[in-house]
Design a protein around this nucleic acid. Structure first.
Length: 553
DNA sequence: ATATTCACG
DNA sequence: ACGTACGTGAATATC
């Protein structure tokens, strides 16, 4: 089998030859396994999983079993038949513990299905834009993602141990205080028990119900309302909030991350999934590196544990306001475009417009509200949704939206046109022609009464186009790093941010290259009507990065 | 397996 | 009358 070293050596030149096409289901996995054995693969030409993702983004899975059933009408032999029950926890049999003839039959069926599915699905991509997206973006990106996963990132286990011990002590303390306030001990993590304490024993007023079962909510928003009531028993929700935050950070990050460090590389190797998000974004798992805490002070400590290679520096490159810039591009609104062209503060500008004041008189509160409105526009906001987030009445929220659309009529026209096209064709397209099918869009609905599909449609073009842009940038950066012979490595993508590590002396060159590839070529290639802006920062860990100002140092 | 909550963009 | 902003992944408890 492939496992034997002589066979691998014989295949090495074939794998290395970019002119010999290779395809497989989830071929990124093969790249990683082979790279782990020192074998480089070039010439990746296809992957049915990725082809199906471009054809049907938003399907629950694009796994081989599903694809074979759907397109080949062929039920695959379940892998459980070979290696035992499928389970994330339970250790499975390995292939080398299974009889060779059974493995061969299974592997043969897999390879055959992948090959036939690739032919079939690729023919369905039918030229531009999907086939171009496949051949020139998603397939080449596989190699880049494999490299991100292979590179991994170093973690400061000692720091997390200290933080975890502190949190453990803090939790013991808070939990004692909670039991006193509740009048008895109970399992704070159990929603039924917590509801009983809050709403039955302490008789606090129910603030809202959960979506599916209609049970009383106990989420952050609810607990904050309860804490603000000033009733007897209002101390408790405050403490619960504190306990929740600390318990969440400890279990999800501080305790879990050190367990994920690969002892051989002493780094964390997450997955960057290419076929999950309906909009074209990547997702990350095992662990998820795209939701590492940053907003709370307590959470930010965790970022400090993400380190570059010893003696190297971490570099972060963030797109500034990429979604609003794309809104300006798509709507062709001149005021928004000018704001970005002149690098103005777009939240302040919108605040001035919707509050009807000079930009110099915009207060931080007005700016904060305008920022919420700006995000709302990208999400297809309703009056109600905006009201909840701003803590104002629905009427007031509607007046804000009216004021916004009165000043930015092109945004309203743009959204109406997008919905109309979605209704006609059944899908929404991004800047590179990526498609997401959306059913349930109605003709001329107003923003007050938009339904879920209509909001999804409105969000797709912008969120998906931002995903297109950063994927393209990753591809270009990867090629430049090779061409220019840099040792720097790309480590992570967090939707509008890329993270790199640079060896001593290479930071400036890397920073310049990254900034360039994330902006100018994309603006030109895609004829963007708004410039892109990238903010660079570097430091000894992911928290303590300092902005790199051009022409400095 | 499902529901809830909460971490991120 | 009601549920209401878009996209994710993980932990926990309960069924």
């Amino acid at each position: 089998m492939l496992d034997s070293a002589p066979t691998l050596e014989r295949l090495r030149p074939i794998f290395a030859d970019p002119n010999i096409a290779k395809l497989n289901q989830n071929i990124k996995y093969d790249l990683l396994v082979l790279r782990g054995r020192g074998v480089e693969v070039h010439g990746v030409s296809g992957d049915p999983m990725v082809a199906d993702y471009l054809l049907h983004a938003g399907e629950r899975t694009h796994n081989l079993e599903e694809l074979a059933r759907r397109y080949l009408n062929h039920p695959m032999v379940p892998i459980e038949d070979l290696i035992g029950k499928k389970s994330k926890k339970q250790p499975q049999l390995r292939m080398d513990q299974v009889a060779v003839d059974r493995v061969a039959a299974y592997a043969g069926e897999d390879a055959d299905a992948a090959w036939r599915l690739c032919l079939h699905l690729e023919s369905r991509l039918e030229g531009p834009p999907l086939r171009t997206l496949y051949d020139e973006l998603e397939i080449p990106l596989i190699e880049v993602l494999a490299e991100l996963e292979y590179n991994g990132i170093r973690l400061d286990k000692k720091l997390l141990k200290r933080v975890g011990d502190d949190m453990g002590r803090r939790l013991e303390q808070i939990e004692k205080e909670i039991y006193v306030l509740a009048g008895r001990p109970f399992n704070i993590g159990s929603l039924p028990q917590l509801r009983k304490v809050l709403f039955e024993e302490l008789k606090l007023p129910i603030q809202g119900k959960t979506g599916v079962t209609g049970a009383p909510s106990t989420d952050q928003e609810t607990l904050e309302k309860l804490a603000a009531l000033g009733l007897p028993g209002s101390e408790l929700p405050r403490k619960i909030l504190e306990q929740r935050q600390t318990a969440k950070l400890k279990s999800t990050y501080v305790d879990a991350l050190p367990e994920m460090v690969n002892p051989a590389t002493r780094r964390i190797h997450a997955s960057f999934n290419q076929t999950v998000a309906a909009t074209g974004r990547l997702s990350s798992s095992d662990p998820n590196l795209q939701n590492i805490p940053v907003r709370s002070e307590q959470g930010r400590e965790i970022r400090q544990a993400f380190l570059p290679e010893e003696g190297w520096r971490l570099l972060t490159a963030d797109y500034s306001q990429i979604e609003l810039r794309l809104l300006a591009h798509f709507t062709d609104d001149e005021a928004l475009q000018r704001a970005f062209a002149e690098d103005h503060d777009v939240h302040s500008l919108v605040a001035a417009q919707i509050f009807g004041v000079e930009e110099g008189l915009v207060t931080p509160e007005m700016r904060r509200m305008a920022k919420t409105v700006n995000f709302g526009v990208i999400y297809g906001m309703s009056g109600h949704g905006l009201a909840v987030r701003l803590g104002i009445s629905r009427d007031e929220a509607n007046r804000f939206i009216e004021a916004y659309f009165a000043r930015y009529p092109k945004v309203l026209d743009y959204q109406a046109k997008l919905l109309e096209e979605c209704m006609r064709t059944g899908y929404v397209s991004t800047i590179l022609g990526r498609r997401r099918a959306i059913a349930g869009v109605r003709s001329k609905s107003t923003y007050q009464q938009r339904n879920q599909p209509e909001r999804e449609a409105i969000n797709m073009e912008i969120q998906g186009s931002a995903a297109d842009l950063i994927k393209l940038a990753m591809l270009h950066i990867h090629q430049r790093l090779r061409r220019d012979g840099l040792r720097s490595r790309m480590l992570m993508q967090i939707h509008d941010e890329l993270v790199f590590e640079a060896p001593p002396g290479e930071l400036k060159q890397l920073a310049a290259l990254v900034k360039e590839e994330m902006t100018t070529p994309l603006e030109k290639e895609l004829s963007l009507r708004t410039p892109l802006k990238v903010e660079l920062a570097a430091g000894p860990n992911w928290l303590d990065v300092e902005e790199i100002v051009e022409g400095e140092g």
